Simulated assay, not measured.
Amino acid sequence: MANLQGRFAGKVALVTGGGTGIGEACARLLAHEGAHVVMLGRRRERVEEVARACGGMALACDASDAAAMRDAVAAVLARHGRLDVLVANAGGFGQGACADTPDADWRQAFDANLNTAFVSARACLPALKESRGNIVFVASIAALAAGPDVCGYTTFKHALIGLARSVARDYGPAGVRANVVCPGWVRTPMADAEMAPLMAAHGIGRDAAYDLVCADVPLRRPASPAEIAGVCAFLASPDAAIVTGAVLAADGGSTIVDVPTLAFSRLETA
């Protein structure tokens, strides 16, 4: 892939959940801008496919597994000798309201959405201190507000902001930055699957379902994975050298909407 900007020339970046969606887009963009990229994910075939496209390294493991993450970081250092960026993107799971969430589902949501980020950050921090590198935590607007019947996902995405701020506070004196990106709707395989109930209920296609969920979003559309990757790359780059502990909503304006006034907006279009 051509290196057009080179903001990450000579840098080494590790992307968790790097096989699909936002993680894949981050890996491709960072490689495009000169980074040596390491894709980490549970599905070996997917991360190896992305690694081939990026000219990078693939590691198949669960980011919430402490021993596996220690081994992964050791493998990165053995090959590249340094680590400059962690994109903590792995996530998912957490459906159901509080009273309907079994213990096993709660633990799964914790592992997927918070423990992956904690374990990967802890494993990477010694190397990031050496390089004065940084972490980009990929959360969600579920870290800022609550959707229906997603108790586990909402809880642990909220906690992800606390983790990022703690890392930023504790490791800032060592030159390590930590920031959070909170995407809204993004056209990923996971979001495509979430359109299914709307498609069935309204007898509509996937594009119309996205139109429906974005009807009150100021930009009136979902993001592409590449757009979210651009935000992540900015925060990881020298362009954001003074930015740490920040929470950046990349949501088309979703979180600026004053919900109690939506009825007035609908009057204008009636």
Rank of each mutant, 00 (worst) to 15 (best):
M1W: 09
N3L: 09
R7I: 02
F8P: 06
G10W: 03
L14G: 01
G17V: 03
G18Q: 08
I22D: 01
C26E: 02
L30P: 07
E33I: 05
E33P: 08
G34K: 07
H36A: 15
V38A: 03
V38L: 05
L40H: 03
L40C: 07
L40D: 05
R42N: 04
R43W: 00
E45T: 04
V50E: 05
A51S: 15
A51V: 07
A53R: 08
A53N: 05
C54W: 00
M57C: 10
A63S: 07
D65V: 13
A67W: 12
R70N: 13
D71Q: 14
V76A: 06
V76K: 12
L77P: 12
H80I: 01
H80P: 07
L86A: 06
N89R: 02
C98A: 15
T101C: 13
T101M: 15
P102R: 14
D103L: 15
D105S: 15
R107V: 08
F118D: 10
S120V: 10
A121Q: 10
A123I: 12
C124H: 08
L125R: 14
A127D: 10
A127F: 09
K129S: 09
E130M: 07
S131P: 02
F137D: 03
V138L: 05
A139M: 01
A142Q: 08
L144W: 07
D149H: 09
T155I: 10
K157L: 00
L160V: 05
I161M: 09
L163F: 01
D170G: 11
D170E: 15
Y171F: 15
G175I: 04
V176L: 13
R177K: 06
A178T: 02
V180Y: 03
V181A: 00
C182Y: 01
G184I: 01
E194I: 06
E194W: 11
E194R: 10
A201T: 11
G203V: 14
D207P: 08
A209T: 11
L212H: 12
V213L: 04
D216V: 07
L219P: 10
L219V: 15
E227H: 06
I228Y: 04
A233W: 00
L235M: 03
L235H: 03
S237C: 04
D239Q: 05
D239M: 03
D239R: 02
I242Q: 11
G245K: 03
A246Y: 02
A246C: 01
A250F: 00
A250R: 01
V257S: 13
D258K: 11
P260N: 13
L262Y: 09
S265W: 13
L267P: 09
